[in-house]
């Protein structure tokens, strides 16, 4: 368990992040509270409602775990120790975990690895948590499209392997060129109001985790979709391609 050191107080950034996480947690809690109320009003129990409630509870718990991981590492003021990680396996796992939520929002979930490359240098637990946190926010993006796509993607660039979560309605973030360019957003109650019903805490939790992995989160494009992504360095370990 993490305790702030006595007398140190909580930094302004951490306070804003904590508020943002608390605000974000309202969404799954509201879903669970109102779904159970609705189920009690109905004569027959719809088991799919129970499944949906379970996935919202799981999402809330994962957001809390990710937040605790990020705060824990940040409080030690040390970067995470990076190791060789297979992106294809990790992205597929995260997609699998996000699929119940994507189904509820009627979002088609895809994994796209563009080009051939080996493992990347990262921290598997933190990377998984960061991508999951991003996916949990982006999946609920309001959309007018008939077919909505959320993509967990990776592609090779001159400076490394760009890995992130993209959405077909992400263009609803006009004029935002990068989180780093607008740090005051994080201090607002709903810094990404364009995203929809929450505080988008998952974006800031992911940002903190990527910082702990010595990289940063930015708005990026990937094959026609916009999203949040970070650049990871290729591992020098030989990969079996």
């Amino acid at each position: 368990m993490i305790y702030p050191p006595e007398g140190s107080g909580v930094g302004k950034g951490q306070e804003a992040l904590l508020l943002s996480v608390a605000e974000q947690l309202k969404q799954p809690l509201l879903y669970i509270a109102r779904s159970s109320e609705l189920a009690l009003m109905e004569d027959e129990l719809d088991r799919s409602v129970l499944r949906d409630m379970e996935s919202h509870a799981a999402m809330a718990l994962k957001l809390l775990d990710s937040y605790i991981l990020g705060v824990g590492v940040a409080s030690q003021q040390a970067a995470l120790e990076l190791e060789s990680v297979s992106l294809s396996a990790l992205l597929s796992d995260v997609a699998h975990e996000l699929s119940p939520l994507a189904k509820q929002y009627d979002v088609e979930l895809e994994v796209m690895l563009d080009g051939k490359y080996g493992p990347v240098m990262s921290h598997p637990q933190a990377l998984r948590a960061a991508l999951h946190s991003l996916g949990g926010v982006i999946v609920g993006l309001p959309t007018n499209q008939r077919q909505t796509i959320m993509r967990l993607g990776a592609h090779k660039t001159d400076i490394g392997i760009v890995t992130g979560v993209y959405h077909s309605s992400m263009h609803r973030l006009p004029g935002v060129k990068g989180i780093a360019e607008d740090p005051k957003r994080a201090e607002r109650r709903q810094p990404f109001a364009e995203i929809g019903g929450g505080s988008a805490a998952g974006v800031f939790v992911a940002q903190q985790l990527f910082r702990c992995m010595q990289t940063s989160l930015d708005l990026r494009r990937h094959k026609g979709l916009q999203g949040f992504a970070a650049t990871l360095q290729p591992s020098k370990q030989l990969a079996l391609l």
């Binding site: 879903y31 109102r34 779904s35 609705l38 109905e42 949906d52 609920g140 309001p142 929809g196 019903g197």
Partner: peptide, 17 residues
């Protein structure tokens, strides 16, 4: 008018009932 589609579906269902 509910930005969260999943939450909106619950409110809609209750109001329809």
């Amino acid at each position: 008018i509910e930005p969260d589609r999943v939450l909106g579906a619950i409110y809609a269902r209750a109001l329809e009932q």
